[in-house]
Design a protein around this nucleic acid. Structure first.
Lengths: 230, 230
DNA sequence: TATTTTTCTTGTCTTATGTAAACGTTACAA
DNA sequence: TTGTAACGTTTACATAAGACAAGAAAAATA
């Protein structure tokens, strides 16, 4: 297991020094010990053979983020697609100076600021670690190389398509909830479909995700749990 | 120009007879006169050469829908990806017996019930024509053939990826609106970014799209236009 | 352990929204 | 012309949500 605590111990360092430290540490680190979960998730979509994996692997990097560190800042270009080996993250927007969380990712999920990454333009959203996080990353240039390489091109296009489609399915469901359900129904649905998320994530983040305020979510919870008791 | 009025004139016929009529009419119709707009939109994403277009074209069909006719019904498997040559359509869900519109498409847009089409499973949403509509369609099996054909496979995978990505960009923006904006701000944004849509679409559909009731939208409009007058 | 920060709940007040129903207008068909 | 259906607006009323503030509880940190 990767010693995540060594990251946490550095968290008093300033942002910039800290990042340098990590990137130097990364140089010495090989992706391979953490590849199995990554391969497993990728091969749910496309099965690559050994030759292809050999190429892909050389295009991957490891990245560690301490709690509250950013994968992308708002206004920055998102440089990589991430795969979360351990930990969890949130995606948020800034509105009137306050943060609005709109998405969560956890172990075995892929994460990126999609439009920013694919178009290499400044991101409107930021992505931040909720815990200490270990990521496998695929940088934009590395992805382009895999899409250009005749050995990997065809399957990488397909992988990209299926990854995008999964995100669409997720958005379709979520949008469906916003259009057809009340905030209370959306919370109840989440409680039913994804109870683990509710325990891992601070409520005020969750409130944003549901499109309401933290105050309102607290009252919804009270309403629901009072009803259950009765 | 395609004589859409001939479709409208049949609209008194029962659903099932009507559909038969149209499908018979379709047999005699060649896609080619309507291809240019389609090609233009596709080639914003991927440029196909003549040999590839020749193959693709044989996999396309034409479909006409009269006003209020359905492209997909809720619970049905969505059989095709559509490209709107003329007309406009809406996507809606049913909640407590009432319809909730969640998406609009118009000329030069691609439309499908994504999850249903890609997984060939029953659709949770329905897609209906708002006008008389002329569509170029690509059926699921035809798409699979293009993805299997070595001549077209690589570029079709890419086309699929880029089409999916465009939809993600659209969802990202929309979700951003739901998380960070009030209904009034969402309406104002739409008024600014897409004024033509507001004029083409009935307000009660628009209200659903914004996540509010028609009553509330009417009040919002009154507030906004009163403010402008002052 | 003690202290600080973050998170959650509660209360009050104000405002926006949903529901349901009524009304006027328009488009279309009988 | 008349009738019907669809659409947009308005009203009254009840409810829920937002803003703001205070305090409790929990978690992170020293």
């Amino acid at each position: 297991m990767f010693p995540l605590n060594c990251v946490a111990n550095c968290s008093a360092l300033q942002d910039i020094d800290y990042k340098k430290t990590i990137s130097l540490m990364d140089e010495c680190r090989n992706v391979s010990p953490y590849l199995s979960a990554f391969k497993q998730q990728v091969e749910k979509m496309v099965v690559f053979d050994d030759e292809e994996w050999a190429i892909i692997t050389t295009h991957l990097s490891l990245k560690t983020l301490g709690r509250k560190e950013h994968f992308v800042q708002s206004g920055e270009i998102c440089k990589a697609l991430g795969f979360i080996v351990t930990g969890s993250m949130r995606l948020y927007h800034i509105k009137d100076g306050t943060e609005k969380t709109s998405y969560f990712c956890t172990t075995n999920d892929f994460i990126t600021s999609y439009k920013s990454f694919m178009k290499q333009e400044p991101s409107v959203s930021a992505i931040q670690a909720l815990d200490d996080v270990l990521l496998i990353t695929l940088e934009y240039n590395a992805l382009q190389e895999l899409l250009d390489n005749p050995v990997t091109a065809r399957k990488m296009e397909r992988f990209g398509r299926l990854l995008a489609e999964d995100l669409i399915f997720c958005y379709e469901d979520r949008m469906h909830g916003f259009i057809t359900q009340t905030p209370e129904e959306r919370y109840a649905t989440l409680l039913h479909d994804n109870p683990s998320m509710l325990q891992q994530v601070p409520q005020h983040y969750l409130a944003n995700y549901l499109g309401i305020t933290a105050t309102s979510l607290s009252r919804i919870r009270k309403r629901i749990f009072d009803t259950i008791k009765r």
